[in-house]
Nucleic acid binder design. Structure first.
Lengths: 200, 200, 200, 200
DNA sequence: GGGTAAACGAGACGGTACGTCGAGTCTTGGT
DNA sequence: ACCAAGACTCGACGTACCGTCTCGTTTACCC
């Protein structure tokens, strides 16, 4: 169960090095401005040689993606699936509120910003972010969307990704550009509006 | 006589150096991966001393923001105001299509990614981006929103920023994370859904 | 009386600028490591524009030579001529002792080191040092040497320069390389040995 | 295996980098005005990173001293010991002539001037010059002085350093300030006079 | 005594080198 | 056999001066 280097790397004696590296990356991303989260600093913090890092990841971006995925493995991210009380807007509001709360925590905020930077700078990294971080998030919503769709609350023409975007994009946008306060009120408003947008 | 600096800005005697720097920054951002858009490269391309750049801008981020603002000064942003045919969804669709088209142009795509990177890395830069780039965009929509609001197509509770986010955020999200194709069809769908979301 | 720029420069309104520059150069040479005695620092200290300095001197070396000459104009350097008590060795010892004392004063030490650096780095400057600083020193000894020569204490084959070198070179050498203590005892020994060396 | 650094010196793994740096420094000092002998130029010429130089030497001065010492290691200094024909003046004249000849070679002249500049600018460097360059020279004379002393040609009160200075200082002085021609005739005269000066 | 030209202070300009830091590669020792 | 440690080359960082160049602003001289 993932005790192996992610991409079929030689069975590598030390899972330890891998874990230490990922943890160090997470820790540094949380406590330093991102440009100071250098491979050198990560290696030092992890008590690992730089070569050991380069042997496993081609660049910092790839490492950071794995670090976030690693973190998400440990804590089933945003509390698992979307609740289903029958009231779609309310259920989405609950999730968005918790998303907003997480984004308010500096570590997670910094980590996500780091991830976005890497995704913006390199296309391949962006694809990895999509697969390992965004797609799982969409999957968490998919089930609830399916229910809502069969209850006639979501237009059949609106796919899971599209629905996800209607719900999450405004929060993402406001988080990244800080066009306004990112609070529970905003989460509620977005949930409500998104429901209307998706309605048949 | 061109011996004037921007807006009574402190020092800058020669506008020439300023302009050359901004143009060089734009050109390099368009043709190189962003990490290679170094101050050194910009200075060389602009035929300007590094010190001249550092005398005007504290870091690359500030310079890039000004470069984008400079570009927007020259080309009245994305074609000026939002059209008003009376059909809000159609009008927004027109704008979103042109936004999508612009984002498909590699130079603008690269430039915007650069801007986002800087905004993600430094809070002060993010604020500048908001003021100099995002706010003007919102302003372009504001008039149309006002009309729509008085025509009863937008809920009075939805402010300009909020409305802007409902319209633009999904496109922004898809552009940044490439969760799906970013084309005219998507622009139309988003415009339509956003209108419903904003309705009273 | 030297109230004019040294080399027939246009009648130059301000002797003040010239003097202030030279004094600033002397002051800085006395208080800073020589590499920090920059034209920029001298200009700032003198309250003078950099261009004003470059208008008068082609490089720092030329400026420093003039500065030393300026200083020597003010204070008839090492107390004027060599005494003549009839005892050559004793007379020379008196002078060498005062030379040693001067070299022990940090300002003069630093200034001379600066001068030597410039002379070592540029041939033209070396020539100027020779003319404006060393030759006058030799001249101070010449009269005493003449007396000694007619008293049969100096071989007629030994010219003034040669005699000067026999007397001063060991002190200069020891000052520059610190091969040993540079004190009155050494001054006396050198004076005595030099007399024997010069004898017919 | 050449993997050894100088004298059990702390880090330096590759002797290659060290040697290349020293040779480059010597070459550049011989062919450029000293202010152009920059660390950057040395690194480039040596095919070595600047950091590698700074890792080994704190400033250019220290590097130049080692470079000269390195050169002297390769070519047993100025032809080895002072000859001993029984005639002290003649023996010293031979040596001084070869010193004069060496100083006439532009490379050695330039190198020595560089060394003097560094010694004049920094006290610690001066001490290193003394230890690594001057002291060995004195040692070469010491043996001959000892012989001469027991032959009653040198006053017992004149130590090796003092004797060395009497012999070499005039040449050094004339070399540095060019008070007159630096040729064999001068070498002979100085040797002769120095012998008289040292006599009991 | 007012008008003009020069020299001035200030300091921005295009450059070069500084000394530092990190990237990514490679070598050495230790376990 | 693999790994931490860290030296290696390379290149960008941000700073400091270089020597040149505009700028207005004083003077000092000549009408």
């Amino acid at each position: 169960m993932e005790n192996d280097s992610r991409d079929g790397a030689p069975p590598g004696r030390s899972e330890r090095a891998r874990t230490a590296t990922l943890e160090a990356a997470l820790a540094l991303a949380a406590e330093l401005p991102y440009p100071q989260v250098t491979i050198e600093a990560i290696a030092a913090r992890a008590g690992v040689g730089k070569a050991t890092i380069y042997r496993r990841w081609p660049h910092r971006g790839a490492l950071m993606v794995d670090a976030v995925a690693h973190r998400n493995d440990r804590a089933a991210t945003a509390g698992g699936a979307v609740p289903d009380t029958g009231d779609l807007a309310a259920d989405l509001a609950v999730v968005l509120r918790s998303v907003v709360d997480e984004l308010a925590r500096p570590e997670w905020d910094a980590l996500l910003r780091a991830l976005c930077v890497e995704a913006l700078v390199d296309t391949a990294t962006r694809a990895r972010v999509l697969d390992l971080v965004v797609a799982p998030q969409i999957a968490l919503f998919a089930e609830r969307f399916a229910t809502a769709r069969s209850a006639g609350r979501i237009d059949d023409a609106v796919g899971d990704t599209e629905a996800f975007e209607l719900v999450v994009a405004p929060v993402f946008h406001r988080w990244q550009l800080r066009t306004g306060p990112l609070d529970h009120a905003y989460a509620d408003a977005v949930a409500r509006r998104a429901c209307r947008a998706m309605a048949p």
